[in-house]
Amino acid sequence: MTRQFKRHDRSDIFMHWFNAACWIILLVTGVGLIGNPDLDPVGSWYPRTLRALVGGGANLLNIHLAVGFIWIFAFVGYLAINARGALFFLREIFMVSPARDMGWMIRKMVIMTLGPKVLRKLGMNPDLPAQGFYNMGQKAFAQASVVGGVIIAVTGIIMFLSDKVFTAQGTWIVSWSITLHFVAVGLVFAGLLVHIYMAAISPEERPGFKSMFTGSVPEDYARHHHGLWYDSVKSENASTGDETG
């Protein structure tokens, strides 16, 4: 049996799947809350059907609001309890080495869609620069999720407060929040598609996907996909004598 490298705590795993569940519900209900022929992302049948299903737009809005608040409160709570982890996470995803990470990103995108041969034909080295705890693709999506998530949460709260604290003079803030909420969700959703493919469908990330249940990855996966992290864990372990298993 290969040695396992621990990547995620149980709480991290829970939060990931909790977040995934919230986002799916919020996305499904949120798209249903758009009801304007010039906007309807999937056609007007969708909000109509969904609203009929839950007994009206007001109910749909309430479901969306409830889940949104559960999501926000859970995250705020999690961050409060696990501030260290959050800081680690934020440092990891926002520490970008331009040469290494951008190179990785471009080459990876070409490899994934067109294949390594094309990359070679373009005269580029198909070898990918070694990556840390997160590769640049993961970082990019994490960044989008964090920034987007904050925007979505804040604009969502503003919309919730619209008919509670905003006066007629302040509604422009609400109105722009709707626009921002919509655009932010759209962009995060675009990233989410890639994230889901890479993590759940693409075979090469299968160990990573499994780690979102088990918490750890095999040594060679860690070495190949997160070389820098692998090295640092190795040296750390060597100095402490501890080995993750």
Binding site: L33, G35, G56, L61, F160, D163
Partner: peptide, 25 residues
């Protein structure tokens, strides 16, 4: 944006669904 204001095809009235309207103005 939400269709809280809509033309009710049963009556021809332009209605406001007060439960869906958030007062965005």
């Amino acid at each position: 944006p939400t269709g809280a204001t809509y033309k009710d095809l049963e009556t021809g009235i332009v209605e406001i669904d007060k439960g869906l309207c958030i007062g965005c103005g």
